[in-house]
Simulated scan of single mutants.
Amino acid sequence: MNVLRLNTGLRTPSFCSSASKNSESETQHQKQHLPSYTEVEKLSAGLASDDKARLAVVNAFTYSPEQLLSKYLVRRIIGFGSNGVVLAALLNMQTPVAIKIIYKRKQRHSKPCPDVEALKHLNALNCPGALKYIDDWQDAFHFYLVTELFGSDWLASSPVISNTAPLFPVTFTTPNHRIANGAAEANTMISLPFFAGSCDLWAWAVLHRTHAWESSGHNHSLLPIVPIKEIIKQTASALAGMHSRGFYHGDVKLENILIQSIGGGVAIRLADFGHTQHISLGFDKYGTREISPPEMLWDSPYKMQELDGRCIDVFALGMMLYRLLNQSGKLPRAAKSVNAGMVGYHDLLKINGGLYPFGGLDDTDVEDLLMLNSMCMVDPNQRITMEQIEKSSWLQNIC
Results as ranks from 00 to 15, higher is better:
Leu355Arg: 13
Gln396Val: 10
Asn7Trp: 06
Pro96Gly: 11
Leu91Thr: 13
Leu201Tyr: 14
Gly241His: 03
Thr235Pro: 00
Thr288Pro: 00
Ser25Trp: 09
Lys120Phe: 09
Pro96Thr: 15
Lys285Thr: 15
Ala45Ile: 07
Arg310Glu: 08
Ile291Cys: 06
Ala271Gln: 02
Gly344Tyr: 03
Asn352Val: 02
Gly282Pro: 00
Ser20Ile: 13
Gly197Trp: 06
His249Tyr: 08
Leu87Gly: 08
Met242Val: 04
Gln260Met: 00
Arg333Gln: 13
Ala156Ser: 15
Asp115Met: 00
Tyr72Leu: 00
Leu122Met: 10
Gln396Tyr: 02
His109Gly: 01
Asn326Val: 09
Asn83Leu: 01
Leu91Met: 10
Val206Arg: 11
Ser70Asp: 13
Asp136Gly: 01
Ala165Leu: 05
Glu255Trp: 00
Arg323Phe: 01
Trp394Asp: 10
Met319Arg: 05
Asp284His: 08
Gly265Ile: 02
Leu90Gly: 11
Met189His: 10
Asp251Val: 07
Arg76Gln: 14
Arg289Ile: 11
Leu331Pro: 01
Cys311Val: 12
Asn163Trp: 07
Leu324Gly: 03
Glu255Ala: 10
Met93Gln: 15
Thr288His: 04
Val74Lys: 05
Ala203Ile: 06
Ile257Phe: 02
Gln305His: 14
Leu145Ser: 07
Phe168Gly: 09
Leu69Cys: 14
Cys127Ala: 15
Arg383Thr: 15
Ala45Tyr: 11
Ala118Ile: 07
Ala186Met: 00
Leu317Phe: 03
Tyr302Asn: 07
Asp51Cys: 00
Gly197Ala: 08
Trp204Glu: 10
Gln277Gly: 01
Gly264Lys: 02
Met296Ser: 12
Ala183Phe: 02
Ala98Trp: 12
Pro380Asn: 12
Ala196Gln: 13
